[in-house]
Design a protein around this nucleic acid. Structure first.
Lengths: 181, 181
DNA sequence: GTTTAGATAGAACGTTCATTCTATTTTAAA
DNA sequence: TTTAAAATAGAATGAACGTTCTATCTAAAC
C-alpha cells in the first residue's frame, strides 16, 4: 500500500470524525496530509470515494480492538465491553462515525450509508455467533441487548466521559450475562 | 409567535435532521418554507442562529413526549421508555439530533454544542430526581444506566428498527428496575 | 386614506467548494 | 543511465455557499 495513500486515509478519517464529512474540505485534508491535489485524485476518484475508504479504514481499526479477544474465555463479552471502552477512549470519544455516515448519507449517497450499515450488521452477527458458541440462552436477544449497551456507552461518552460510560456498560453486561447464561 | 418563523423552524429542523447541518443550504430551507431570503434573516441573524433555534425547537418536541408522563405511577420509567420509543418512531428514526450537534459543532461553534449538552444533562437530572422521589436505591447509577438504555435504543433504531429497539429497551428497563428497586 | 412595518423576488458579493488542467520535478525500476 | 511512473505546486473552472442589497409590494393601524 502506498505511503501517501495511507497518510491521506489517516488524516481524512481523523478530520471527518472531528468536523463531520461535510465540515471538512479537501484543501484541509491535502494540506494536513502533505500531499498534492492530484495525488489525492490519483488514489481516490472523488471526495465521496475518500469518505467510503475512510469508513472502511476505521472499520479495520475497530476490529483491531474487538477481533482479537480470546473467544475461549468464560467471559468474552465482558472483555469485549472493555475493548469497546478502550476504543471509545483512544479513538472515538465523540460518538460513532458509522452511525453518522448513515445519518448524513442515507438520502444522498446510499452506497456510503450501506457500508456503515453492513459494519453494524456484521458486528451483531459476530456477537450472535459467539453467544451461541458459548451456549447462551436466546443468544439473539442477548446479542441485540449487548450491542444496545455498547451503542449506549458510545453515546454516553459524549454526555459524560468514556470511563464512566464504560464502567456502567461493563456492569450492565455482567447483569445481562447472569440473565441469559 | 410569527407564522413565518414557525414555518422556518419546522422546515429547518426537518431538513437539518435529514441531511445534516452542513448538508443543507439556506436556499433549500427558504424554498421549502415558502419564505423570502430576508424573512429568514429578519428572524434569525445567521445560519448558526437558525441551527440553535432548531435544536431548541426539537428539545420542546422531545419534552412533549417525556415531560407529560404521570410521575405518580409505580412504573414511570417503563412509561418513559415507551414514550422515548414513540419519539423514535414518530420524530427521530435516524439517530439523535442533539448528539449530532455536539459532534459537528464541538470544535467550531461551542455555543451550539453546549445547548445540546445542556439538554442531555437536564434529561439525566430529570431521571435522577424522579428516581430519588420514588425511592430507587442508588438512583444516580440507575438513572445513568436508564439513559444509556434510551441512547442505545436510539442508535439501534438506525441499525434495525424502532419497534425492535424499543421492545428491547423496555425489557432492559424492567430488569434494571428489579435490580435497583 | 395615509402611514408604517414586514414580506416579497431576485440580483449581487465575496468566499469556498470539488474537480480538472498544466507544466515541472522527484522517485524508483530497468 | 535511461525510462516511466508518481508526485509536485498552483492556477483555472463552474457551482454552491452564506450574506447583503435593492426595490416593489402587501397588510394592518391610525
Amino acid at each position: 500500500m502506498s505511503k501517501k495513500r495511507e497518510q491521506l486515509l489517516n488524516v481524512a478519517e481523523q478530520l471527518f470524525y472531528d468536523y463531520g464529512f461535510h465540515g471538512v474540505g479537501l484543501k484541509q485534508i491535502i494540506q494536513e496530509a502533505n500531499v498534492a491535489t492530484m495525488t489525492l485524485y490519483n488514489h481516490f476518484s472523488s471526495k465521496d470515494k475518500l469518505v467510503e475508504e475512510s469508513i472502511r479504514h476505521r472499520e479495520e481499526r475497530y476490529w483491531a480492538y474487538m477481533g482479537k479477544v480470546d473467544q475461549h474465555t468464560d467471559i468474552p463479552f465482558v472483555t469485549l465491553a472493555e475493548q469497546h471502552g478502550h476504543f471509545l477512549k483512544d479513538v472515538s470519544p465523540q460518538g460513532c462515525m458509522f452511525l453518522r455516515a448513515i445519518e448524513v448519507y442515507a438520502e444522498t449517497n446510499p452506497e456510503i450509508a450501506q457500508i456503515a450499515r453492513d459494519h453494524k450488521a456484521k458486528l451483531l452477527r459476530f456477537f450472535e455467533e459467539l453467544g451461541e458458541s458459548i451456549g447462551i440462552k436466546e443468544h439473539k436477544d442477548f446479542s441485540y441487548q449487548f450491542l444496545l449497551i455498547l451503542e449506549g456507552a458510545t453515546s454516553m461518552t459524549q454526555i459524560t466521559d468514556s470511563e464512566q460510560a464504560t464502567a456502567h456498560a461493563i456492569t450492565m453486561t455482567k447483569r445481562l450475562l447472569e440473565t441469559y447464561h
